[in-house]
Design a protein around this nucleic acid. Structure first.
Lengths: 239, 239
DNA sequence: CAGTATCCTCGAGGATACTG
DNA sequence: CAGTATCCTCGAGGATACTG
């Protein structure tokens, strides 16, 4: 609970004055952006700029403020420089929130699931999510270079480069030979990510076209990163 | 989704522009008071003034605004006059939130459980919760009158009157003969309500004193209303 | 890279008074 | 009982420029 300045006072977020767990949870989690920050920490973002990139519309000062409050409330801790991996990490208290966060997300996935309009999707955020949720064990050792051709989006090309099973997305040609290309429009990619359409079905009807060696295409189906809520969505659609 | 005025426009609560279930849930549930309103609807409050009484600090206009938004978002519906029980009721969409709300509350109960200071407790809210969570089947038919003597609180006397198994709390002497009195301080009553202390233990060490016939005292242990999160709290304390 | 400091705006929501 | 209308305040947070 120690803070950067050493003695940061929590600005008096107006509590509810109710000694009730729901009220307490609302006080800790209820501010704008807080739940999304926790979501991103749970899916592998830890550096300030990683978090910033995944939250279009937040300002750097507001992100900083929210992180300080979460640290003050004991949900996250900052690991600096010498303490191995730098950045922000969930404490046990913060990690314990995962079931509740999943339950909220599953509620929304069950009930608000519909296909997004193209203008509701942000290509850079979707690719970031695919990177973060990728199954690292499914990548080959060494380097793998995948190019996404997103029909009708701007920008419309992204590269996912996996080095020693650690993927990262970039929007400028990294210059390496491409092992695999994925061609589809952004909505199809989102539908697959969200679990609204099976990857195999999208490949079959060629709304998503994968080009590469047979082995690479098979591996793709194994490492592709789905939304953590995809299973709930599939269940809702099946039920 | 129809609204009082017939064409109420949702003020543009700034969304996150992320097509993600957690973001969607945050948009619908993230505003101040919203989760507490849903909590109260789940525990039996339905009339405007019932909700208002259970949310000290909210203004009538803000409660009205929040209810309109929840109605607009499809989580609650207003049943007026001729459609039997008047007031606000959860729709299936709203009721489907219960597991998520419980998960959040249980997280807080597990992690933030501690004994409240006396100034953190509001007697009228605690008695309201006990009324709402009472086990109606445990009341006798006809009338039961219970007086709570809350040592050191102001006001320090409340009556719970059950008529045909429907309890209601009042703070002025209703004038009926008293069948049962409960004497304790507010913190003890809260500890019992929250599941932090067993009712039987509080009676045994006389921090909570019940006076009445043997039958009434036994019935009391059956109808007394616990917090919906009490079981989670007991589990956390036992584990 | 990872923030902080300062200044300024605008909109959420309180207070008050009112209504069917 | 169940709200609504109006006016006003103040504080959350954006913009901008800065730092170790």
């Amino acid at each position: 609970m120690d803070c950067p300045s050493g003695r940061w006072q929590a600005p008096p977020v107006p509590g509810y004055g109710q000694y009730c767990p729901i009220a307490k949870a609302s006080e800790v989690l209820g501010e704008r952006w807080t739940l999304l920050i926790l979501r991103d920490l749970m899916t592998g973002a830890h550096r300030f700029n990683d978090l910033y990139r995944g939250l279009p519309g937040i300002s750097r000062s507001l992100l900083s403020e929210r992180l300080r409050r979460l640290e003050h409330d004991g949900l996250i801790e900052r690991r600096d420089a010498n303490g191995s991996p730098a950045g922000y990490w969930l404490t046990p208290l913060g990690a314990d929130l995962q079931p509740a966060l999943m339950a909220m997300g599953e509620w929304a996935a069950r009930n608000y699931g519909r296909d997004p309009r193209r203008d509701e999707l942000d290509p850079s955020v979707l690719l970031l999510w695919i990177e973060r949720n990728a199954n690292r064990d499914g990548f080959p050792p060494g380097r793998l270079v995948v190019r996404f051709d997103l029909h009708g989006s701007r920008p419309n090309r992204a590269w996912l480069v996996s080095e020693d099973r650690v993927p990262s997305v970039c929007w400028d040609d990294p210059g390496f030979d491409v092992d695999l290309t994925i061609g589809c429009d952004l909505r199809t990619l989102h539908k697959v990510f969200a679990g609204r359409v099976a990857l195999s079905a999208a490949m079959r009807d060629r709304s998503l076209v994968v080009e590469g060696s047979e082995a690479q295409r098979r591996a793709f189906m194994h490492w592709f990163g789905y939304s953590p809520m995809a299973n709930a969505t599939r269940a809702a659609l099946a039920g």
